[in-house]
Write a protein that binds this DNA or RNA. Sequence first.
DNA 1: GTTGAAATGAGGGGCGTACCTCAATTAGCG
DNA 2: CGCTAATTGAGGTACGCCCCTCATTTCAAC
Lengths: 340, 340
Amino acid sequence: MRPTTKDLARVAGVSLATVDRVLNDRPGVHRKTVEKVNSAIEELGFVRNASAANLARGKIYRFVFLLPKTGDQFLGELLYRIDEANSAFSAEMIHVDVTRIPENDPHRIAALLATLDPETVDGIAIMAPESPQVRDAMLRLEERGIDTLSFISGQSRTTGGDAVGIDNRAAGATAGRLMGRFSGARSGKVLVIAETMQSRDSLERRLGFDQVINADFPNLQVLPSLETWGNQARAEKIVQTSFASHPDIVGIYILTSEARGPLQAIATAPHENGPVTIAHERTPFTEAALISGELDAVIAQNPGHLVRSAIRILKARSDQKEPLASQETIRIEILLKENT
Amino acid sequence: MRPTTKDLARVAGVSLATVDRVLNDRPGVHRKTVEKVNSAIEELGFVRNASAANLARGKIYRFVFLLPKTGDQFLGELLYRIDEANSAFSAEMIHVDVTRIPENDPHRIAALLATLDPETVDGIAIMAPESPQVRDAMLRLEERGIDTLSFISGQSRTTGGDAVGIDNRAAGATAGRLMGRFSGARSGKVLVIAETMQSRDSLERRLGFDQVINADFPNLQVLPSLETWGNQARAEKIVQTSFASHPDIVGIYILTSEARGPLQAIATAPHENGPVTIAHERTPFTEAALISGELDAVIAQNPGHLVRSAIRILKARSDQKEPLASQETIRIEILLKENT
DNA sequence: GTTGAAATGAGGGGCGTACCTCAATTAGCG
DNA sequence: CGCTAATTGAGGTACGCCCCTCATTTCAAC
């Protein structure tokens, strides 16, 4: 039988009321008494029954995911996983909501954050490009008692709050290592394609990529990043131009989470050499491309894990507990045809 | 406010007692009445409060991990993660125990399984080489109401029960792909080192490895598997002999979860070419070897994830629920220096 | 209609904890 | 010593559900 508060009271030689006061940090307990209870906890190995506590409290966890309004297949995957988690965690009194806002409108994001009510929301995971407005709004939310979390792409890690997502510099470096090793002894140029290089994430990936290539693969020369701006026609044009002016392209690195546009552009552009092609994020499209051989490797982060991790961290914060660090580290996954 | 059983009773137009009968599959309820309650559940989106239910039931989950008596750093990691999970899940009334048995003694394993009492144990995760005795014992356990799970290395997947672990053929294939790509255009031989090839896991990995190499990398020739039998002196001898008789070794694949012995053997044996070296499982040793460059890649499965996944699956089975498939799939991880 | 079985209702006690009130005891201070 | 403040105890109610008992109603077969 597991020890209960009754056992604690007995062993500590105090009343249930006092045990309760100590367990819940209520005031008006003598220092000595607190210690008596704490050593009884030690002695018995008492662990509070979370179910009973939450039941008594009537505790419901209400979390929000703030996501971009528009997005690619990766975002779709996230939405699906949030939905899935919502069902799975419902029995544990965890409810998750999704709010979507144009991601390039930091003012609107900040405004929305300002309207959140601690009575209605316990915590929020925010996926938004770095901006002072958002960062400030997050800080103010914390002050008002709503936990915040940078989700995937985010505010700089120095905010104090946690962040869920991969280290993009390391992800870029991983892509760089694969690019270098996969292209073997061949010399030539490497094309880097991004939707935009405005974002911190893209910059970090590029940085990591360049570091590895420059340090260990002098046979490769990384070209300036091409930006598609999410425009297919433009993507095809810039890719075509690149192939034309660089006949010695041996590698292509697609920074963007939506690899579809660039890959289609590459497929339609005439080129040779079978360049090594690496992209980010597992989506139905990249998965198919891996199988077919259009892609040689995909650097990914598990969307389901990202979502559940964010939820667990917010829950732990709400419970004033430490999350299990080892469980909440998002791995930089490397997907090949064989381990997809 | 979340709907409770009271709301269900009201909406369905029945009493609390009947709601309870339906929710817990108790007999003596008319088909029509069951339907009334079920549609009320639908209508309200009722989800049973798992905390309250478990509290009322006095439910405690007691699981056991059956692990080998002797093992390497990977086993140590597993033990640590089990301990960690035990603390983390304690508040949710989940208790985990570890029992260790010499893994090559299927009779003793079967005997131990036969002694388990459903009053004391709800489920067990078993890490043991495939054997008819163990498989039968598992089936009998299931009949007696104790859930069983093949853990990491296991009984063939056709047992009916779940299994937690990676697809070893795919893991071997992944290693093969990396070996092929990393060795570039070079031609030569590939050394395969295992502790033993007796186990199903080793065979499957080798199979997957060979398939990929044979299909896509005709420049590589995979040598017969060397077996160290867990003996360091022997490991060094066979590695040395291999290097001596095959001057053109361009790759080394260590099947064994303990890469330490083989790697040390390789380090002490004179060789050239800087062969591509790939091993399995992340341990302090393989991690260091990745950083130092002694290893080019590691194929791994996350020990913490394995442990928690096993626990969650056993819990779900105990609750008669479906586990979240996407969360319980163990990924075949590829670790490079950059994403360790 | 009678009868027996099946179905349903009403109600209570309990799980371990939170949170509240009020009384009782103790400690500290002048 | 008396007085106030600090500390502690006792007890109750609640949370949502499980599980049990006993009575009552409904139904179907005769």
